[in-house]
Nucleic acid binder design. Structure first.
Lengths: 215, 215
DNA sequence: CCGAATCCTGGTAGATACTG
DNA sequence: CAGTATCTACCAGGATTCGG
């Protein structure tokens, strides 16, 4: 299935043959958040052509990064999920995302924030050394997109969707307001004052949030 | 210059727009080894079409990852070198290479080992915690390709070409013999016996080598 | 409605030839 | 040495269609 090759006996060349084609790594990113149905992937990647998604999923299967699984009876749906090998690419993906985020200045016209990109950016900016302290759960809303994160025993989990019982809610009118929060790490007075950032929960939790997530 | 976009305000999407096209990341890998002339890049990437190399170099310049520099008088040559931002991608590239190396079983027909892929694989497999002890320099030869590595103050540097005064020389007839050495980490009796591996230098240095480099 | 396959168009990669 | 030019083949993008 790998038709285009690089002709080098090299780990990086092999990696690029598997995940180097357009859209592939974004599909993997969304599958890293959790198993997804075909339609979930389409809504999570609004601009992907359906035939490309179909082709990429087959390639990911063939390379052993993902499996196609039919859910048992009552569900009767198809989900795609990563294999262990597929999940093992997460550190590389995190590093790439961290590097690419350095040029994330302003959203370009038409650019959106998706639940998966937001959830992954929380994982990307997570600093274990800033996560000391008691467990807590928070919900993050950016431009209508909602994800939640849980800190349990200094381990972070992130998922799309609202939090059942959040200790902290951070709502950001724009993507840049949240990015500035995790980039600058200082008390977001201006953003809170002008309403671009809205917070519910204890003040100390917002401080912990700014320690835990840092770009 | 980034014509094809993903429409997401996301660090990973930005990264893929910059380095996601075919050949780009392999060019970056070779430039991470050191500044290179156009012809050096061609010989280091034997299968790249020359027009693609030309296009990619312009894109890398435009994205701020590389600069084109005309050497001063006596040389009168052009070199391409990474900017600081370009060099900062190395951790992501290392992670990708490490992940891809898991499927490096046998070389496929026609696949070659290049000096840059070999040098980068030494950086990829380098373990700082296995590098304790006095400095030493070594030369690694695989299937006619020669690179050298220097350990100085527990910091590794790797370059193509022979070592001026190596403490250790490891010569491998095939790429797999060297890979097995850094993968298995055990004493390579079989390889030494059947001649697929040849070593010059103190025995203890070969042991240190197998501690320093581990896949 | 979900999960695709098919068709068409245009752009990009690959191969080779050529040039300042 | 350091590219450009040209041609072909293939892949991505977009729309539509199709089967369960």
């Amino acid at each position: 299935m790998v038709t285009r090759v690089y002709g080098q006996f090299c780990g990086l060349a092999r990696a690029m043959e598997m995940i180097g084609e357009r859209w592939t790594l974004l599909i993997v990113r969304n599958l890293l958040i959790g198993p997804k149905r075909y339609t979930d992937l389409r809504t999570g990647l609004p601009d992907i052509p359906t035939n490309i998604l179909s082709t990429r999923l087959k390639q990911l299967e063939q390379c052993g990064l993902a499996v196609r699984r039919a859910l048992p009876y009552p569900e009767r749906a198809v989900v795609y999920e990563l294999t262990e090998y597929g999940r093992d690419i997460e550190p590389a993906l995190i590093e790439l995302g961290r590097w690419g985020a350095r040029t994330l200045t302003e959203p370009r016209s038409g650019e959106v924030v998706t639940a998966e990109s937001l959830a992954m950016s929380l994982r990307t900016t997570f600093r274990p050394d800033g996560a000391l302290g008691p467990d807590f759960g928070c919900e993050v809303r950016v431009a209508g997109v909602i994800v939640h994160a849980d800190l349990a025993d200094a381990v972070l989990t992130t998922c799309p969707g609202p939090h059942p019982g959040p200790d902290l809610i951070i709502e950001s009118r724009t993507a840049t307001a949240l990015r500035d929060l995790v980039r600058d790490g200082r008390w977001p007075e201006d953003a809170l004052a002008d309403g671009s950032l809205h917070v519910e929960g204890e003040r100390t939790l917002l401080e912990r949030f700014t320690m835990m997530f840092r770009l």
